[in-house]
Structures are given as structure tokens and as C-alpha cells.
Design a protein around this nucleic acid. Sequence first.
DNA 1: TCCCAAATTATGTCTAGACATAATGGATAA
DNA 2: TTATCCATTATGTCTAGACATAATTTGGGA
Lengths: 223, 223
Amino acid sequence: MTLHRRISRDLEDRIRSGELRPGQRIPTEHELMQTYGCARMTVNKALSQLAGDGLIERRKRAGSFVRLPRLDTPVLEIPDIEVEVTARGDRYRFELLNAQTRNDSDLNGPTLSLTGIHYAQDRALAFEERRISLTAVPEAATADFTVQSPGHWLLQAVPWTRVEHMVSALAAPASIAARLGVDKGAACLVVERRTWKDDAVVTVVRQAFDGTAYRLTASFGRN
Amino acid sequence: MTLHRRISRDLEDRIRSGELRPGQRIPTEHELMQTYGCARMTVNKALSQLAGDGLIERRKRAGSFVRLPRLDTPVLEIPDIEVEVTARGDRYRFELLNAQTRNDSDLNGPTLSLTGIHYAQDRALAFEERRISLTAVPEAATADFTVQSPGHWLLQAVPWTRVEHMVSALAAPASIAARLGVDKGAACLVVERRTWKDDAVVTVVRQAFDGTAYRLTASFGRN
DNA sequence: TCCCAAATTATGTCTAGACATAATGGATAA
DNA sequence: TTATCCATTATGTCTAGACATAATTTGGGA
């Protein structure tokens, strides 16, 4: 591994682990070149890399700062329903229907299995089935998901490294229609998402949205 | 504008304009440092930037080459239905239902308005309504969309710089249901996409997919 | 003729400087 | 007290070298 790569990896790890928190200042180029005993250009390359990836923000005279969890990047990266609902000024609530731990071959190991409903202004927005690997996130066993939604909690608690989405449309079966308070056969937008940290699956979630009330957006390219 | 930025912009323009074609070799660092009269590190920074953005590929001893249109990046960038269908070994066909030119305030200027159906193995997969700005893409007026789908043609013909997606679910109204050969009220996955080249909208498209036959995928993060 | 070794070439990384730029914060003047 | 100027500081860009690395080409020997 090259030196500038090692520097940026070290910093990325410290950011993802939470040691360096959003908004916090990271060491200056001069401090880092002393820490690693290298030239400034090498440190500069590492920091430019992190800035390009959106992990840090660089401000002249002020220093380099850990960026807030990217909200301006493609929404499809990880939609946080709680944040989205409250951002548009609506009242948010998550209702936990069921929680149990069991073994899951898919996440190979003990798994917390949850179902629940996301409400916006007391109207059901999405029905969620989620599995969380207790191997990858042991803290999940003691978290209280009646207070905050599992998705919101996970985003704050776990530094993920990879996400995979599948988006499809589904005619609501009776079980989901009842949960969402829509007619049986109504169009639902279904998002299935797997989230990894390094090589371990952290969580697998399937969310069915009321098709008339929700849509995903994503944009790519500069500007 | 800084020098390394200017170098990478110049090269990006030559790639997007088609002067430098995929697979073709671009000037070496030494040639570029002579062209721009600067140090190698400056050229190197520009080329590293382009490589990071996936526009070129760098091979030791061989040189730097224009990359093929990104197929390994998030699928959601721009799904080319024709490529997707043929990639899984199915027979693809596009049926042009209607084509007319008119003025469109949304794309401010003369616009080619198209509707058509994408078939996979002679089964309707998607109903498409598309508008193409003839200001941005005058060649579209003479293209033959009974031979290839407009989406496929545009991807090859126009160097886009920005895309915006909206994905939603819809219960098929009679007009769409008939086109797709599904029941009225069946769940459809609707993708609306706006594509820009610089500040000009190139095309706006709305595609309704048979929800049982299609889904979008996207992945983010390393590896 | 075929295979291996050496020379060549282009990129990859790094250094130790330089000057530029922007923002901050304190000192000075109105 | 308030406004303005200036020094400080951290990043931004650039240079002219250096050695490393990987892959191709070439030349020679079996």
C-alpha cells in the first residue's frame, strides 16, 4: 500500500469509527506530515482524495473538517425515512410490530428480525421488514426501536461501506395492504437494500411504500 | 481556472465530443507537459483526476486510454433497455408508435416527441414517452427510431453531463395497461429521467415498466 | 524457430522546496 | 466603539527533479 493511500485510509477509518465526528477538525497537513514523516504533497494528495470522496471538507486558513453524513449525494445511497419525513415538516413515527432474534443463514449468525411501519402525519407511508446481523452490530440487541426507527439508528451507529438496492413495483398483497391502509392490489414501490461493512452484511431491509405517497430520486453528474 | 483543471477539462471535452474515442490512446504525460509547458506532476494530477472519474484507464508502459462508456458504475446512471435485454440473451425490439415535432416550453424550443414500446422476447416490457430537444440534438430529427430505440441512440450520440431520476410506482391506467398487455390497475414501475448536457436539457423520458418483469438495481461503495 | 533476458517506456509515487490565495483574528486608526 | 488594515495560517497549486514498477519490445542465444 502506498503512503498517501495509507494516510487517507487511516483518516477514513477514524471518521467511520466515529473517533473523528462530523464537523470536527482533523489534523492539518503540517501535523500529518510530521506524524507520517513525509512531504506535504503526499499528505495533500491523501486529503484531496478524501475531499473528492466527500468525506471531508477543506477550508482555507481554517483547516479540514469531517463532513456531515452526506445528504446532498444521491438520495438512493441510503434514504433515511425519518429524516426525509421530518425534513419536509411532517410528523414522523415508527411503529414496531414485531422483534425477535433467530439464526439466519443469509446473514450467517444470530439475527434481529424486525417488522414495523413508518408513519408520516399518522398516515402509513411504508411497511418495513428488516434483519440486522447481531454479529456485525451487537449493540442492536439492546437498542430501543420504539423510540427511533431501526434505519435511523443504524445509519448513526454503523459505518457502512457498501450498499446495494433493488427497486421494483408490486401489487400490494392483503397482508401489506392492511398495514399500509391501502386497497389490496394497489401499486407499491418496493425497495430492497443490503448494507455491508467491509465483507460482512450489516442489515437487509425490504420496504414497501404506498406508491401514491412516495418516490425515489437520484441524480448524477456535476452541478 | 487552474492548470491541472484546464488540462483535464480539455481532455474531457475531447473525449465527450468523440474526438478521442473509447479504447483510443491519449497523449502521454510527457507529450502533455510539452503541450502545456508544465511539470509532469501537474499533468499527472489531471490524468489521475480523469482516471478517478472513470473517464480514462491508465496502464503502465502502455499509456492512458479512453474508457468504454461506464458499464460497471451504478446501473441507475442511465439504464439502456436495449443493452440490458440483449445482455441477458433476450430478443429486443422497439416499436415506435408516434413521432412528431412541436414546441415545448419545458425544453424551450423545437422538440421531437416520441412514444413507443420496448419488447423483450416479443413481450411488452415498457411503455415510453420521450421528448428530445432539437436545439441540443438536431441530428435527432433525421435519426430512424424504427431501427434502434431513441434511448440507445441518444446514449451513443450525445455526451451527457448530468442525469436526474425519479422512481415511483403506479397503478396502470387503461391507456398504459393496454400498451403493456397487463390488467388495468396492475403495478407499474415508473422511471422519469431528465438528461442534461451542460445547462441544456437533452431529453426527458417517462418509462412505465411492467412491475412483475422489471426492477432497477444500484450499488454504491467500494468493491 | 523459439524462448529468455535486457533495454525501453510510460505510469506511480515521492520529495523539498516555491509562491498564491483566502479567511481569520488581532492591532491600529477614525 | 467601530471600522479598517495587516500579519498569520492553512490550504491550493506548481516545479524539477528522483527512484520504483510494470509491461512491452528487442536482441541474442540455444
